[in-house]
Structures are given as C-alpha cells and as structure tokens.
Design a protein around this nucleic acid. Structure first.
Lengths: 143, 143
DNA sequence: GCGTTAAGTGCAAGTAGTTGCAGTTGAACG
DNA sequence: CGTTCAACTGCAACTACTTGCACTTAACGC
C-alpha cells in the first residue's frame, strides 16, 4: 500500500501468479497505472489502440477483471452507465451518489475507517474501501 | 419506515407526487411489494405477464426507476449480472462480496449505523443503507 | 360522460459488458 | 532453438439494460 505500483512490478506479480505476460496485457496495465484517477474500458481501449490497433474490447474487459482479482485495480459503477477503473494505490476517496438528482459528492477516507475495522474484526472480510460508491438522497433532494 | 408499505398506500403517494396510476404500474408495484426479499426485472416481468401479457421490459425498468426515485424500493448489483430490487421496508441486511471467489456473505445492519450517522451529520447525505453491497476479499481468499 | 393533453407505454434500435469457440502464442522443457 | 500445450486473444453472438419515437391513455376541467 505504501510503495507505488509500477507496471513492471505488477507484471512480475502476475507472472508469479501463473498468468502469461502478453503484449496486450502489458499495454493495458501501463495505461491503467498511468491514469490520473478513473479510466473507463473505452478510454483504455482507445489508449492501447494507438500502439496496437488490433486490440479487442473483450481483451480489455478480461484484463481488467484479472487485474481486479489480483488486487491491482478496483472498479466502481457510479451509475453513469460506464464502469470506472482505477489503480488501488491512488484515489482513496469515495462518492455519495444521489439517486434522485444524480449528483455526485466526494467523501474523505476516514469516514470509513470504523466500518473497515469492524468488517475485518467481526467478519474476517478485507473490504476494498479505496473507492466506494454510496447511493442515497442528498440534502437538496430530501426537501 | 416503521409502518409496512402496502400497494395502495404507495399508489396514493405516487399519485400525490404527480405520477399517473396505470394498470401496469399497479401490477409491478404489487409484485415488488409482495416479493419476500429480492426480485429481478425478469421475475417482475414474468410475474406481471401472467395477468397482463402485453407488458414490456421497458415499462418494468422505467417503473422500477420511478419506485427507486420515490424511495419505495432500492436496487443492488451483487455482481451477478442482474440487478436486484427489493422494498425498502424489508431486507435490512447487507452483502460482503468477494471479488476473488465471488462468494456473498450477509452482514447485520448495526455495522453501518455509525457510518450512516456520520454521513448525515458531516455531509447532509441520507444514505440508502438498507441493502448494501461491499466488495473486497474474504478471509479464505486472502491467504 | 366527453374532450384535451401531457404522462406513459410498447416497440425497435442502441449501448456496455460477457461468453463460446476456433485459432494463436507465451513459456516451460528438452 | 524447436516442440508442446494450456493460457490467451479476437470475433461474433448474446445478455441486461436504456432510449427515441409514435401511439395510447389517465386524469383534469367542463
């Protein structure tokens, strides 16, 4: 968590886990890790296609699933019809999504520390709370 | 929150909010409220089709969106490819979904009370935590 | 009841993401 | 290096859900 994830380090970890290191995977991996915050599958697809025009959407989706399972990225559906991917070592903020007006507000990490601790202690569950989406009703829409 | 939601009461509320009371809506509304716990759009569609064979999927989806906005149902994507709908006055439990093995465990409501209070106090946000999905890694997959 | 009209419905086409399958290729072993 | 083979890729078909549009109808006033 403390040290930054580089594409090379992640690639070696994937290899250690028994996965093969294909050029497509390397390019997708680099593209996600280079992203400032969120990326969508389409953005990744376009990014990789510049270097490697033959890439397919299936490969992007399957690689992202692999990276998620391996713990390098998390994905969030903010309700906008497109899933957002982001590296786990970045973007430790969260979203409050109003189900009435669709507005999205950001929340600090520390609001969740109590929950996270409790889930680990009581349920032995390691919650991925690095980028969390909470649905509900904002103050403006409650009136 | 304390009193049970009946189809008639919900129907009147919808009318008060300016929505029209169509037979399709009434049947979908009854079908959700009668459901024990979760329902998918397809289950609702099949249920309503018994009485009203002309119903379309669009109507089911649009009605569920309306019921969600009006606060009668909540929806959750447990990662199984289909969204689950359920009445807000039932099923106040939550899910821990392992992103590695896909297992789903249930959690009690009280784990979230602190978070809910904090979101309301600090962000003036009324979080819908009646049926919540938390992704992460279960104890079995952390090893 | 009857007419008016904006809300609602059904259909068909569209979008994001998934999956089965045949062909390709990274990597392990000789 | 060359062979082997399961992991991986690309394609095309598919699923869940959404949306635009023309037609229908609930609800309100008369």
């Amino acid at each position: 968590m403390a040290e930054a994830i580089t594409a090379e380090r992640a690639a070696r970890s994937l290899q250690d886990l028994g996965y093969r290191l294909t050029p497509q995977r390397m390019m997708i991996l680099e593209a996600v890790l280079e992203s400032e915050d969120h990326v969508t599958a389409e953005e990744l697809y376009e990014q990789v296609r510049k270097k490697y025009p033959h890439i397919s959407f299936s490969t992007v989706y399957r690689t992202m699933e692999l990276l998620r399972e391996s713990g390098f990225v998390t994905q969030t559906d903010l309700g906008g019809g497109r899933v957002q991917y982001h590296p786990v070592d970045k973007a430790t903020h969260h979203h409050l999504i109003c189900q009435v007006c669709g507005s999205v507000d950001e929340v600090d990490q520390d609001v969740f520390s109590g929950l996270q601790r409790e889930l680990r202690e009581r349920y032995n569950f390691d919650a991925t709370l690095t980028h969390f989406a909470i649905f509900g009703r904002c103050g403006r829409c409650r009136d």
